[in-house]
Design a protein around this nucleic acid. Structure first.
Lengths: 225, 225
DNA sequence: ACGATATGAATGAATG
DNA sequence: CATTCATTCATATCGT
C-alpha cells in the first residue's frame, strides 16, 4: 500500500535556506520534523520488531543520536513518535473494538497501519522470551547521574520530556558510541502489526434498518456514564 | 503491498443511485471514503445542531454504525470528518476574523512560562557536561543558530525546554561509532535484512551506511546499566 | 486536459 | 495516556 510514496523523501539535513516550496517569502522553513524513510524504517523496526513502546530517556537519546545520520532529528521527535504511534495504534483499536466481541484480526482495512513510508517488516520473532520490555513504566532511573535533581520517579512523561531534553545537551560529548554488548533485547509482541479501523463487520450494521434519526442522535448524545 | 490503486470510480455519493445499502455490487474501491449525502447530512446535523465537535471513541463507533446503513463507512472516517470539519471551520474563521495585528501572540509578549517552569522544575539548567553534570553552567548565550530555524519559542513552557537544547550543542560531528561487543544475541535480526535499502531512499543507500543497524538496535535495547 | 478547490487522511506537536 | 490542534499530503470533483 503505497500509492503515495513520493514526498516525504525529504533530504536529510536541511539545506537550510529552505523556504519551502512556492512560498514567496522565506517563510521559516518547516518547523517540524519530517522523518526520512530510513528513520521511519528504524523507528518502526524498534516498535514492531523489538517491542519498544515507551523508550526511556536514555534510549531516546541513543535512538535520536543514531538516527541523526539519516537526517536532522532531536530527542523530542523520537519521543513524540513513539508516543503518537502507540496512541494511534490504540485509538484505532478503540474506534473499532470497544467492549464487543474481540473480532479476530481486523485484516488491516483502513489505517495504513504502516504503509506510506514503506515498511513491511518481516515479523521475525526471535525465539526467546524477553523479560518484559519497556512498555508501561518509564525508566527514568539514572537521572541522578546528571545531577539534575532527581525528582526521580516522577513517572510523568512530561518529566521525562525534561530529562531527555537535557540529555540532549550532552550526548555529543559522549562520543555517541553505542555499545552493543547487552543482550536484554526484549522483543515481544511483534504481532501488533497491522490492524486497521476496520472491524466493520457488516453483521453489526444491519440492526439499524429502521433508522430513526432522532433516536439515533439521542443515542449518540446520550451521556456516557 | 502495491496499493489497490484501482481507480474504479466509485459510486459517487449522490445518494441512492443504486449504490445505497441495497446494492451489493457497489464496490467502490476508491482509496478514500466518499460520504453519501445522507451521511453528510447527519454528520452536519450532529455538528451544527447538536454541538458534536470531537466525538468520543464511543460516540464515533455509534455514529459510524448508524451511518453505515447509508453506505460504507468506518470509525476513522467519522473521526476524521469531525476533526477536519472543526479544523477547517476554525481555519476559515482565522482568516476572516484575524485582526490586523500581524502576530497574535500572548500579548504580554511571551509566555508567562518563564516563571512557571522555573518554579516547577528548578533544577533545569542548561548544563554542559557529558558525564559530570551539575556544575558546568555553560553560558548559553550566543551560541545557538546552527542554521536551524528559530522556531518561535512562545509556544508553551514545556516546549521552551527544548529551546535550551537548541541553544546548546546540538551539532556534533557525530561519528557515532558503534562498538559492538557481544556478538551473540541472535535475537532480532529483523532489520538486518537488506530488504529496505532498495527502492526507498536510493540516494542514501550505501555510502552512508557506516552504521550497523542491528548493532544500533541492540545498543538501544541494551539494558540500562 | 488542466488548474483550483474541497475534503479525506495522516501525522508531528502539544495539551489535559 | 487520551485528546486535540495545526499542517500537510493526496485525491475527488468541478469549472472552464
Amino acid at each position: 500500500m503505497e500509492p503515495q510514496l513520493q514526498q516525504n523523501q525529504q533530504q536529510p539535513n536541511e539545506d537550510s535556506s529552505g523556504c519551502g516550496k512556492g512560498s514567496f517569502l522565506c517563510r521559516q522553513s518547516s518547523s517540524r520534523w519530517t522523518p526520512t524513510t530510513h528513520q521511519i524504517r528504524i523507528l518502526k523496526d524498534l516498535y514492531y520488531n523489538n517491542g519498544v513502546r515507551s523508550p526511556s530517556a536514555d534510549q531516546i537519546q541513543r535512538i535520536s543520536a543514531g538516527l541523526r545520520q539519516y537526517g536532522k532529528i532531536e530527542g523530542k521527535n523520537v519521543f513524540y513518535w513513539f508516543q503518537n504511534h502507540k496512541a494511534r495504534e490504540r485509538q484505532k483499536k478503540r474506534f473499532t473494538t470497544t467492549n464487543h466481541v474481540p473480532m479476530q484480526r481486523p485484516a488491516n482495512g483502513g489505517w495504513k497501519a504502516d504503509s506510506i513510508h514503506n515498511n513491511k517488516y518481516p515479523n521475525i520473532n526471535p525465539g526467546y522470551s524477553p523479560s518484559s520490555p519497556s512498555t508501561g513504566v518509564l525508566t527514568v532511573g539514572q537521572i541522578g547521574n546528571y545531577g539534575y535533581e532527581s525528582i526521580t520517579m516522577e513517572k510523568s512523561f512530561r518529566f521525562q520530556l525534561y530529562i531527555y531534553s537535557f540529555l540532549t545537551l550532552n550526548y555529543c560529548d559522549q562520543d555517541c558510541s553505542i555499545s552493543a554488548c547487552g543482550s536484554s533485547t526484549g522483543a515481544n509482541e511483534s504481532l501488533s502489526h497491522n490492524f486497521g479501523w476496520v472491524g466493520i463487520d457488516p453483521a453489526y450494521s444491519s440492526s439499524y434498518t429502521f433508522f430513526d434519526q432522532k433516536k439515533f442522535i439521542d443515542g449518540i448524545l446520550e451521556e456516557e456514564h
